[in-house]
């Protein structure tokens, strides 16, 4: 069983919701990201989405745009992100999903990427701009490497399309809680509950919800029905505000622990 599947199976048994933090690899630098990953894991994260920075992050708001720019300025590359994952795997087995845009993977070569990512210990891949219509060009390659391709669904996705995508899903489904870019609006749990439950009725694959979840209260409210909650911009903001300070790891640890508390409450 893959690390992702095992994690969700364990949580399901305990009737808990997965806490899925997102952070940008290389922001402010890769050595710090390495420490941050462990801090997240130790404070209650169940799975981590590790952002691979891209020069043109079209689906992201200002917070994650700025994080990507910082990471690229610090010299982050796909190759170095994979090295980071390999290094983390020496003592940390939390499921890791690389999240980003297609071009850096395409340029690396999907085949080579799959090989290197699997060897490094990557569990999943979420490419924002590679929708089901185009994913065919890498799906067999990733399957062979046992890297789960995570599918995004949005409030604009019609029901028929949703059931088709849900049927083919692996790892988990990522339900985007709003029509918008990351980190610009707040989630409205009541508005998305029905859509998420409808989606859950279509598939056994767990459903994570992301975009606009910033506080333990949001996490708790969404966690009432979702199988996982993704917290991105709020965490990236804390990292940005405390980069270079001794306070960084304690602050991040505290934030994650509070989110977890919210989910367990």
């Amino acid at each position: 069983m893959s690390r992702i599947d095992k994690t969700f199976a364990d949580l399901r048994r305990k009737q808990e919701t997965a806490l899925i933090p997102f952070l940008t690899a290389g922001d402010p630098d890769l050595a710090t990201t390495s420490k941050l990953i462990r801090t997240l894991a130790e404070n209650g994260a169940d799975l981590i989405e590790l952002g691979v920075p891209f020069s043109d992050p079209m689906a992201d708001g200002p917070t994650i745009q700025a994080a990507s720019e910082r990471a690229l300025r610090a010299g982050t590359t796909v190759r170095k992100v994979l090295q980071l994952v390999a290094e983390v795997r020496s003592d940390c087995q939390i499921p890791l999903v690389l999240m980003g845009y297609y071009n850096p993977v395409f340029r690396y070569g999907a085949e080579q990427f799959a090989k290197d990512a699997a060897a490094a210990g990557v569990d999943g891949l979420l490419l924002v701009d590679l929708p089901p219509e185009e994913v065919g060009e890498i799906s067999a390659i990733m399957k062979a490497a046992k890297i789960a391709l995570i599918t995004l669904l949005a409030p604009t996705t019609p029901s028929e399309r949703m059931s088709k995508l849900a049927a083919a899903a692996e790892g988990y489904l990522y339900y985007v809680s709003m029509t918008g870019v990351t980190g610009t609006q707040k989630v409205s749990p009541a508005d998305i509950k029905a859509a998420v439950e409808n989606l859950q009725s279509m598939t056994e694959v767990p459903v994570g919800v992301g975009f606009g979840i910033t506080t333990p209260e949001d996490a708790k409210a969404v966690g009432e029905f979702a199988d996982g909650v993704v917290v991105g911009s709020a965490l990236v903001k804390i990292i940005a505000e405390n980069a270079g300070s001794d306070e960084l790891l304690p602050r991040v640890g505290k934030f994650i622990a509070e989110l977890k508390q919210g989910l367990l409450a």
Binding site: M58, A59, L130, P132, T151, A154, T156, P158, V176, G180
Partner: peptide
């Protein structure tokens, strides 16, 4: 092709 986020796909 159509390399866009899911939110735009239906549009």
């Amino acid at each position: 092709g159509r390399y866009v986020a899911e939110t735009l796909m239906p549009a």
